[in-house]
Simulated scan of single mutants.
Amino acid sequence: MKEETRKMTTPGDKRDSGDQDCKSRTAKRKASPEKTTPIKRRRVADQAGPSTSADVVKGVKRKVVQDEEGTTKKAKRAKLLDHMSGDKEQASSSLDSGKDLNNKQVCAKNGKRKATGDNREPPKKKKRNVDQGKKSVADQKREFQARYVEEHQLGEGGCGAVFAGYRIEDRFPVAIKHIPKNKVYCKVADESGKKLSVEVAIMLKLAGEAEGSVGISAPVSLLEWFDLGKELILVLERPVPAVDLQKYKAENGRTLPEDKAKVILKQLVDAVKELEDKHIFHRDIKGENILIETGSDVPRVRIIDFGLSCFV
Score class of each variant (00 low, 15 high):
residue 250 A to L: 05
residue 50 P to M: 03
residue 183 K to P: 09
residue 39 I to R: 04
residue 239 P to E: 08
residue 182 N to H: 14
residue 171 R to S: 12
residue 123 P to Q: 03
residue 266 K to D: 10
residue 74 K to I: 07
residue 222 L to A: 09
residue 227 D to M: 01
residue 163 F to D: 00
residue 24 S to I: 08
residue 144 F to L: 11
residue 183 K to C: 06
residue 26 T to R: 09
residue 67 D to E: 14
residue 38 P to S: 01
residue 294 T to C: 15
residue 93 S to R: 13
residue 273 K to V: 15
residue 47 Q to C: 07
residue 13 D to V: 10
residue 91 A to H: 02
residue 41 R to C: 10
residue 9 T to L: 08
residue 55 D to G: 15
residue 276 E to M: 02
residue 157 G to E: 09
residue 35 K to M: 04
residue 34 E to R: 06
residue 36 T to C: 11
residue 58 K to T: 12
residue 86 G to P: 13
residue 294 T to A: 12
residue 160 G to V: 11
residue 179 I to L: 11
residue 138 A to D: 14
residue 171 R to E: 10
residue 242 A to E: 05
residue 140 Q to G: 07
residue 105 Q to N: 09
residue 285 I to E: 01
residue 221 S to K: 07
residue 142 R to F: 12
residue 240 V to T: 14
residue 242 A to Q: 04
residue 119 N to R: 04
residue 39 I to A: 02
residue 101 L to E: 05
residue 221 S to Q: 14
residue 199 E to C: 00
residue 273 K to Q: 08
residue 147 R to I: 01
residue 46 D to P: 12
residue 79 K to Y: 04
residue 246 Q to M: 10
residue 113 R to P: 13
residue 308 L to H: 06
residue 124 K to R: 11
residue 221 S to H: 07
residue 107 C to A: 02
residue 260 K to M: 09
residue 293 E to C: 06
residue 278 K to A: 04
residue 74 K to A: 14
residue 136 S to H: 04
residue 136 S to P: 07
residue 44 V to P: 02
residue 213 S to W: 01
residue 118 D to W: 00
residue 251 E to R: 15
residue 271 A to S: 14
residue 112 K to M: 14
residue 94 S to G: 04
residue 85 S to K: 02
residue 179 I to T: 08
residue 266 K to H: 13
residue 20 Q to E: 14
residue 145 Q to K: 03
residue 139 D to G: 04
residue 267 Q to E: 09
residue 237 E to C: 04
residue 158 G to V: 10
residue 102 N to A: 08
residue 233 I to G: 09
residue 29 R to K: 06
residue 312 V to C: 12
residue 115 A to E: 13
residue 223 L to M: 10
residue 304 I to R: 02
residue 118 D to A: 08
residue 242 A to K: 05
residue 124 K to F: 09
residue 248 Y to W: 12
residue 126 K to D: 08
residue 152 H to T: 13
residue 265 L to A: 13
residue 102 N to R: 05
residue 308 L to V: 04
residue 290 I to M: 05
residue 62 R to H: 06
residue 209 E to S: 10
residue 163 F to Q: 00
residue 136 S to Y: 10
residue 142 R to V: 11
